[in-house]
Nucleic acid binder design. Sequence first.
DNA 1: AGCATAGTTCGGCCGTAACCGAAGCATAGT
DNA 2: ACTATGCTTCGGTTACGGCCGAACTATGCT
Lengths: 227, 227
Amino acid sequence: MLDGPRIAAVAALIGDPARANMLTLLMDGRSLTARELAEGGGIAAPTASGHLARLLEAGLVVVRRQGRHRYFRLSGPDVAETLEALMGLAQRTSPAPVRSGPREPALRQARICYDHLAGERGVALLEALRARGIVEGEEAIVPTRSGTAWLAEFGVDVERLARGRRPLCRACLDWSERRVHLGGALGAALLDLMIERNWLKREQGRVLRFTSAGRRAFESAFRAPGC
Amino acid sequence: MLDGPRIAAVAALIGDPARANMLTLLMDGRSLTARELAEGGGIAAPTASGHLARLLEAGLVVVRRQGRHRYFRLSGPDVAETLEALMGLAQRTSPAPVRSGPREPALRQARICYDHLAGERGVALLEALRARGIVEGEEAIVPTRSGTAWLAEFGVDVERLARGRRPLCRACLDWSERRVHLGGALGAALLDLMIERNWLKREQGRVLRFTSAGRRAFESAFRAPGC
DNA sequence: AGCATAGTTCGGCCGTAACCGAAGCATAGT
DNA sequence: ACTATGCTTCGGTTACGGCCGAACTATGCT
């Protein structure tokens, strides 16, 4: 009758600490082996195996065999987004995380959300793209005509991306900033390029750290037009 | 260390069928009594009492005493949005709901998402507002100057809404349409007006049904400019 | 005052599922 | 062929949490 049970099934799956740990480990879009996930989740291999089987059956993750390893990853960006939403709720409702290690600020500043840039810099990126007229729209973001040219110059073949199955642009709500940043194929492509050019590099977990040259390049590339 | 456990705590809360039922009942933004929620959740009063205490403590719902009743409602739109996100996941990952009663299509067409219009008509509404230049932006939706005037004519005092604490416009992802519709204070105000003018009325649960006059009015009011 | 209704607390039952150790396959390397 | 490693299946233990009936408190109605 109600769709409560269907929601509950997914939520219960995420609602186990070990599984939630494994899923958050995958939130950066990488593929991890069962063993790595077991370790990250703080459980023994057999337990993890059972958990992964359930996540797999529910379609939250997908697997790819390679040799004697099994590489798991999230089945899509929507999974990561749902996790971010839950994180936002936890953030708002729980009094306040007492622990605020050195990792926390770095996470807020720049991190991977599945496969694109999130956090303060992610929001700034989208803001700059808007200000420079490269993309437009609030909810349904699209590149402008001149923006497409600019992106080509930058190294992104928008036409090709647009032909893919994945939406070109997605507005993804940032849980730490509470504003949207750019996801979708374009968001992923931009992050790829930035990493490739050594503007920033992945650190442990989802943290991204700008190189000093990268920070300058980022600011000059995505500077508002008038300034 | 990881934020898995924090996510898990919220998700586990939603992950119980009885609690999920109660939460979905509240997704239309109404306040319901403990008894109504118990009945809706298919559980006895004492059980519901315990569940509600936990939801309350976690901050997912808030309560308001009134006489001998206790009225519960969701603590904010973000809760409803998270539930929608989970619904979207359940939708995508589970093979397909075998049961597709008469309620299902109606729900897809027009429903309440916390306090604004969602479903096919909700997406159409935002699309029309964009096409007519009343609002603009993809992720960060804002009314245009001329749009503000149009809205005033329609009966919405944008200035007043903007002064409130709540964001004026929110892009809310629609789980059935997989596109965004208009939430926030403006979305809520528009739905209020439409209900007040008998364009549509609430049916059981979250279903909204247009009156025949209402459908005509909606289409004429939110028709694309050129057509 | 007395009754009815809304809600909570308590106690005890029960089922599910998380967990691990040990053993069993499968793949890779030598 | 043999050994090492990655992962799964099996079996059995344990604990947590959902559930209700019964008893209790609080509010409202008459």
